[in-house]
Design a protein around this nucleic acid. Structure first.
Length: 304
DNA sequence: AAATGACACAACCGCCGATGA
DNA sequence: ATCATCGGCGGTTGTGTCATT
């Protein structure tokens, strides 16, 4: 079967380039090659490894899936908070945002934003760039994420959040494992691929860069920026976001001074009795159902 | 039980800047 | 200075799975 691409006479290699989902054998080949030769020089890697893939494809597969420190499983509340905050500052700079979430890839964060955040915005018929949406994030999502973070940290008794990660519901090859990943690459051990994805011998892999969120005020393993965020939001109960004032942040306190914000104030924040433990807005996969849409509708109307 | 739609994620595509010949 | 190649990034699409009807 010839595609428009493959009819080119320039290179017969092009005809054989594989596309689509990676197979176990390809993953093993790529992992083994990088184990022996290191990352980088992707085009060369693609040629020498025997993979019939483009260098780009190899790079993507490695960075987004095979690389040992790629974290799998649902985003934690803390990570979601961080994404919301950083996106408010940097917009769709996914790779930049990802740099502040160890183990998370730009692709994952991008997908999270599109499938979760933008979906909610669509339901509300507002733009994610709009001030209304930012207010909603500030007043609904952030406090609830923080509450959720607190709950999970208090119930975890010091257990790493990563270890509590709920396996994604998808049962496919790429999703079924929430394994503990090596925190660093040195010394590095080539993962053993199986149907559930890369696995690692699990000794010495439970510490390091994985986020251990024992206490929102005591976050030893959390990147600096992350700790700042949590502390800034620590007093979220009555919306005193003092200290949360960073240049260029769309969530600056100043936004409270807008007429819209005043309206919200007049109704004493519907979130005031937001039933933090209520079943409506939070479930096991709270990232999917973060809030009660009725509340949000009310709030978004007030904002408009 | 089958059909259908929604969802989440992986993978691809095109563009652009950096780098080296 | 110019061109080619490579790697990285953001946007988009494809696909498998789950939920609902």
């Amino acid at each position: 079967m010839s595609t428009t691409k493959s009819v080119s006479s320039s290179s017969e290699d092009d005809n054989e380039l594989r596309r689509g989902p990676w197979t176990l054998e390809e993953d093993n080949l790529l992992s083994q090659y990088i184990f022996n030769n290191g990352e980088g020089r992707w085009n060369l890697l693609a040629k020498r490894s025997g993979l019939k893939r483009t260098g780009k494809s190899c790079r993507l597969r490695w960075l987004n899936y095979l690389k040992p420190d790629v974290k799998r499983g649902n985003l934690t509340p803390e990570e979601q908070i961080l994404i919301l905050e950083l996106h408010s500052k940097w917009g769709n700079r996914w790779s930049k945002i990802a740099q502040h979430l160890p183990g998370r890839t730009d692709n994952e964060i991008k997908n999270y934003w599109r499938t979760r955040i933008q979906k909610q915005a669509r339901h509300l018929k507002i733009d994610t760039d709009s001030r209304e949406f930012q207010e909603i994030v500030r007043r609904f999502w952030m406090p609830r994420l923080l509450q959720k973070a607190k709950e999970s940290s208090s119930s975890s008794s010091g257990m790493s959040i990563q270890n509590q990660a709920i396996p994604l519901p998808l049962g496919g090859v790429s999703h079924s494992t929430v394994g503990t990943m090596p925190s660093s690459q040195t010394p590095w051990q080539a993962p053993c691929m199986n149907e559930a994805g890369p696995t690692y011998s699990d000794s010495e892999h439970n510490n390091g860069s994985c986020i251990s969120f024992c206490d929102s005020a005591n976050v030893p393993n959390v990147p600096q920026h992350f700790g700042d965020t949590i502390n800034q939001f620590h007093d979220f109960g009555n919306f005193t976001y003092d200290g949360y004032r960073e240049n260029n942040s769309a969530y600056e306190m100043d936004t409270f001074k807008t007429p819209n914000a005043r309206v919200a104030e007049d109704v004493r924040y519907p979130i005031g009795d937001c039933q933090m433990a209520g079943a409506n807005w939070v479930n096991n996969d709270f990232s999917c159902s973060m809030w009660n849409m009725d509340e949000l509708w009310q709030f978004s109307k007030l904002q408009k």
